[in-house]
Design a protein around this nucleic acid. Structure first.
Lengths: 329, 329
DNA sequence: CTGAAAGCGCTAACAG
DNA sequence: CTGTTAGCGCTTTCAG
């Protein structure tokens, strides 16, 4: 910048102003400076600018990997969300920093903020860390969490309507004449627990009694589906429907069912959750509850940005939609 | 930092040294300072540190979206690579910045470097932008490209051995008794073109003449598989095998084939490419050529980091492996 | 409209 | 072992 000032015969202040498009500078000199910058292949140093401006125009997207429930950055749903977030943040002029942190070490999340690496945090997956997240919010870290809206929550969440999602999935199965509907999911996770609530409500509405033996605490791990199906068979309980709380879980479950000579959807109708891209390419194409990812990404981006501008934000609940495909009909 | 210096009764230099673990400072004062920092919840400002040190310990991972071939950040393979890269870079103490750029605007890639936002670039997908990439390399931007190794290439690539990959896929199909093997892929992309070369070589080795009508320039787009299958049927050519140059393409093709009453693998044996996570959950589980992603991510991370340290790097070719599943047997 | 000067938060000689 | 000083590259009052 000093160089270009010298060459243009002006001071660095003028160059700075010219490059930032200030109207305080003569159009002619402005153009001269712009041309010079182009030819010298010069770009303003963002780091120095940020230091001076005390900002960073960077948002960190944090994906905790939970060693217990084992759902991490390989889940296609989260991976897809990353893509949508990249779009949403870029559109708002923010850079996206991606970090993986151990879910047990959530304080390292605030480090990202404290060190000024990012001026806001988007956290994908609230897991069972409600309290730690509240602490972060208390520290006034601009924070948005993808997940369920919980009581006594100080942080802002964006998430889909999990109760309705669970209801949609379950009542769809009921409407297909299924009465023994298994539920696969780890209800320790807030979102799954809400989907379970929807499941219960739908059953109740239809006057079908809840059957404990049909409820399997399947994890989102690699072979969660197989384990859940095995467990279900071990229990020797008859079932004709299955609500799996993620598409990945649904897919692995279907494969396992097939190995055990169940036909899908003829013997067992299956509904998943998320509507990941591959759901419609699966065989049979998967009936599932869509979480509106692009909208979710936009909502999360807006939520952090507003908090950075010290505006308060309300949690957002996004609508879910049942996508009916062949796995259930 | 000034605050904590005052409270500790020392100068900021001492604080700086203490916090960076310099041995030039008394252990006792060091501890006092560390304790103070903890209690004040203080973290060093990375931005200022970077400015001073003229570094940034950040690598930008750039995913060009190509409006022509339409393969972008939704491809599960690239998404998965993002996850592996996050691990590899974190392990080496670098932050990962994720950027989407228009493939026609590759100069905006050097911006990321010129502005000091990142001290190195990992570019996923070389597309048809060989020349622009060479320009970047000429500008001494630490750059690694995931893709094929091309003649007159000034930049460093990391990629899998696409020729061997294509060979493996094709000769596997031949060994299953298939003789009319279709090829789906856009050979304008360097990697696909090498896979095609492997395909040709394998046919030649087996003494099977190349049949133009079996070669379809399928794109990696959403319904590339369907279009390719349609085209193939339109050509009224008999075929009993299919080599699709990505798993996504293979999956969408299989669905299309099934709709047209072809059975996979009985009528048509199919081999994909990539071995994305969902390949083994597909029905039928997909035979495919595995690209070793974790190894690739490590290689790419090493390659950028070494270039930042001004070490020169050779392109790396990683081994591919045929994963045989039910879609071909 | 433009320049001089100060300072963002940190580190690294250079002297003690 | 510790403090003083200067400066990384930029922006922004405050005076012209």
């Amino acid at each position: 910048m000093a160089d270009i000032a010298r060459l243009a015969g002006v001071s660095t202040s003028t160059v700075s102003r010219a490059l930032s498009g200030s109207k305080l500078v003569n159009d002619e000199t402005k153009e001269r400076i712009a041309a010079l910058a182009k030819s010298l292949n010069y770009s303003i140093n963002i780091g120095a600018q940020n230091l001076r401006l005390k900002q960073s125009r960077t948002i960190a997207v944090v994906i905790p990997y939970d060693t217990q429930t084992r759902q991490h950055l390989t889940d296609p749903f989260f991976l897809g969300m990353l893509g949508s977030l990249a779009d949403a943040l870029t559109e708002r002029g923010f850079d996206m920093l991606v970090s993986r942190v151990d879910a047990e070490q959530l304080d390292s999340v605030s480090q990202i903020y404290d060190t000024g690496r990012a001026s806001g945090i988007i956290l994908i997956g609230q897991w069972r860390h409600h309290d730690q997240l509240n602490e972060l919010a208390l520290r006034k870290v601009p924070l948005v969490v993808w997940g369920a809206q919980l009581p006594q929550q100080l942080y802002v969440t964006v998430g889909s309507d999990n109760i309705t999602g669970g209801r949609l999935a379950t009542s769809h199965l009921i409407s297909r004449g299924k009465t023994s509907i298994a539920f696969f999911g780890d209800t320790r996770l807030p979102e799954v627990s809400l989907r379970f609530q929807g499941y219960c409500e739908a059953l109740q509405d239809a006057g079908i009694p809840l059957q404990e033996s049909l409820i399997i605490p399947a994890s989102f791990s690699e072979d969660g589906g197989r384990q859940a199906v095995d467990e279900l068979c071990r229990r020797q309980v008859r079932f004709d429907g299955l609500f799996a709380t993620s598409d990945l879980l649904a897919m692995t479950s279907i494969n396992s069912l097939r190995e055990k000579q169940f036909r899908v959807p003829d013997d067992i109708a299956v509904v998943g959750y998320d509507d990941i891209e591959l759901a419609r390419y699966f065989h049979p194409p998967l009936t599932t509850v869509r979480q509106p990812m692009p909208a979710a990404a936009l909502a999360m981006a807006d939520a952090v940005v507003h908090q950075i501008d010290a505006q308060s934000m309300q949690p957002r609940l996004l609508e879910t939609e049942l996508i009916v495909r062949q796995s259930s009909i």
